[in-house]
Amino acid sequence: MKVVRHVLGRLAFYVASAVFAAVFALPLVWLVFAPFGAKARLSVALPDPFTLSNFGKVFANTFAVRALFQNSIIQAVGTMLLVTLLATLAAYALSRAPIRGRDALSYGLVLFSSIVTGTAAMVPIFLLIFNMGLIDTHMGVILVFTGGLLPAAIFIMRDFVDSIPRSYEESALVAGASPWGMFRDIALPIVRPGMMVVGVWTFVNVWGGFLVPFILLRSPTKMPAAVAIYSFYTEGGTPIITLTTAYALLYTLPVLALYLFVNWKYGFRFFGGIKS
């Protein structure tokens, strides 16, 4: 009797797991198969005949290649460097300098950034970039993303710096290091894992961001992949599904690779910091 119950329990577990897996996988199955098929279809089918020619056509499209391998990378890497650098400096100051009201400041920042969101503030953000003369530039996109992502990045980074014991830095100061020298030689190497996490998080956010480049950029030569993906249309105006999906797959790969990297290196889960 007990054995039967155990077996039934295991069976129920596997069936329920399969249902969960299907719920999350089914909408994506088409996207995995469609790029390798010669014929465009919206139904799920094993690619027959199997072909890589769609990827060849994507790579032959200079506009699409530039969007993915140049524009998206400039915008995502540029923002990543800026956010990581500024967030590390700010978080370090908030953690180690005697700034009055620094806790309130950290929380206030995150609070304010969740009120002034990209969708609510799209008009003033557009006007700001317009008045700075940065419409249709990579710089405009990078600046707006940096401003929007910084508060959360500082918050994550501060959590990280706070968790590091101060003894190394104290010894360096006792040994006569200047604040800047101590930061560069002692603190920076210790907080590097935190910088990696913030950097990856920023990159993925900008890489997938649609609205900001969509309203700030005008010329096709500057569009990132998120916007350029809408360009595989026939002259009649219908989307060329085989090319779009091949492109979508290429565009998604860096995000998946970064996820696997972070998961392997640090484990992808939430720690105490985010709770309550």
Binding site: Y92, A97, S113, A121, I125, E169, P179
Partner: peptide, 28 residues
């Protein structure tokens, strides 16, 4: 003991504050 003097701390905070001021407070 204080690890980072107040003045250096504010210097570290400055660039980020500028961005947040321009792209979050100002739009508001």
């Amino acid at each position: 003991r204080t690890i980072l003097p107040l003045r250096t701390g504010l210097l570290f905070l400055g660039p980020a504050a500028l961005f947040i001021g321009a792209f979050i407070l100002l739009p508001f």
